[in-house]
Design a protein around this nucleic acid. Structure first.
Lengths: 204, 204
DNA sequence: ACCGTAGCACTAACCGTTAGGGTTTTGAAA
DNA sequence: TTTCAAAACCCTAACGGTTAGTGCTACGGT
């Protein structure tokens, strides 16, 4: 039961990376639907079953850093400067994330995602998990024992902001526009007073 | 190119209904995942391909009245009494829809949906379509040429309300709680002034 | 040096879905 | 009535994602 350390871990990570890289290359090259998992396996020189040992589904090959997304959101809540209100912290993080999605390097990948219904669906199902994690983090931040309806609602709105902004003509401006709405929704819950007055004072 | 009238239509509708009924019965009986489409086809005495002539996917067998949902939302916007503000009209409709979901007859079906990831995912992908339709309807109601970010955002929030409320302990109360937030978000857009003052005066 | 196990391969299948092509039923025109 | 085109349906076969079963190999701890 000791932590497997050294070569084994590295080899496993290398295999995973090789699969992900090969898959993404083939997908961008020939199109997501035109590439089968048997193609990916052959090109990466692994067995099809090995792919499923590393990734839960074909779509997961594209969203390799799924966890990163989730962690960034929850940490934007938990690791924010003391006394910083909740919503502005999330707004800052969303700005960064949207900017990252529309960066030159990632743009072709996201274009591919937008063109494939299967990938869009998978992205949304990921985001539902993220919303749940975020709701829990928000509840914890407020000292609540579990996520209330208001927490879950705000979490969902924040996740929505990402989807909506990504598809907008001017993503950065969209983040701001949507967060004005979220800020108002948050203020309407009464939970915002937990932010010790700073939030209420800061938000006009 | 004449309108197909009479027996043909009835027979087709009957086949569709027999498939849907059989499928739902088997699903509730043995579990959604434990029943294959080949089972459904055999039990309904049709070919597997016939199922796909009536339903786009296996999951669609469960969400038979998909369109109804969408039409109810858009008509809540377009067919509401003159001068009634937008958000309260949507709130009323959501109340009715949530009540319908939690009614005794439909309860086992929704329990099944909640237990199957495939069905939950499908429900969400449906709802994204509904959100888009609702956004368009809202934009039209405001006299806008196309759905802006604010329209899309409000539409999405309203759809979220349905998902969130359905899973809450007290769905009806959750609708009210979430709509307080939506009302505030809507007021923050400035679009609400299109409601000729009635909305602004009535809320709060 | 030895053993448990993690990582991976291989085969064979299951299941949802679609294509291809054929047969019957229906509605309406000739 | 006869005729015809389209609609509805059936059957077969396949494709692609996904999983179970089985076993081999190389790594890491003892």
């Amino acid at each position: 039961m000791t932590v497997p350390s050294g070569r084994r871990e590295r080899k496993k990570a290398a295999t995973r990376q090789k699969i992900a890289d090969t898959a993404l290359r083939l997908f961008l090259d020939r199109g997501y639907d035109a590439v089968g998992l048997r193609d990916v396996a052959a090109e990466a020189d692994v067995a099809v079953t090995t792919i499923f040992a590393h990734f839960a589904a074909k779509e997961a090959l594209v969203f390799e850093q799924d966890d990163t997304f989730e962690h960034r959101l929850t940490r934007a809540v938990t690791d924010r400067p003391p006394h910083e209100p909740l919503i502005p912290a999330l707004r800052r993080e969303l700005h960064a994330m949207v900017r990252h999605c529309t960066a030159d390097g990632a743009a072709p990948t996201w274009r591919m995602i937008d063109q494939s219904p299967a990938l869009r669906d998978y992205e949304e199902s990921m985001k539902r998990r993220h919303a749940q994690a975020l709701a829990t983090a928000i509840a914890a931040d407020l000292g609540l024992p579990s996520a209330t309806t208001a927490c879950r609602t705000i979490a969902r709105f924040v996740i929505d902001a990402h989807s909506l902004a990504r598809q907008a003509a001017d993503p950065e401006a969209a983040v701001d526009e949507i967060f004005e709405m979220i800020e108002a929704a948050w203020a309407a819950t009464g939970l915002s007073r937990s932010d010790l007055g700073r939030a209420a004072a800061g938000q006009r």
